[in-house]
């Protein structure tokens, strides 16, 4: 299945902004971040198709996953 992975802020350092990945069925968020050397504790905001998700959320074909470290403003 094809999933779009978007990284933001410091997660981009040495990685990428956006990438489409071919993943096997049953892949969860943790399976995506581990090869990127992103720890689950670093993940502050995890949006799957704009909705809240977490490291255990299972991905589906056509999903967009957006990952942020702790950031904010106002």
């Amino acid at each position: 299945m094809r999933v779009t992975i978007k990284l933001f802020a410091t997660f981009r350092d040495g990685r990428f902004k956006v990438e489409e990945q071919d993943l096997s069925e049953g892949t969860c968020v943790l399976d995506v971040i581990q090869p990127l050397n992103i720890q689950a504790e670093e993940l502050a905001i995890c949006l799957l198709n704009g909705k809240d998700a977490n490291e255990h959320t299972v991905l589906n074909d056509g999903d967009t996953l957006a990952l942020f470290p702790p950031v904010g403003g106002g």
Binding site: A9, L47, F68, P70, V71, G73
Partner: peptide, 25 residues
Amino acid sequence: ENGVTGAGLPTYGTAVLVNIINESG
């Protein structure tokens, strides 16, 4: 120690919200 006040805001300023708020629709 806080990720927002200790790292996020100093590094990117408040405009870091553009992508967060946009990705939230």
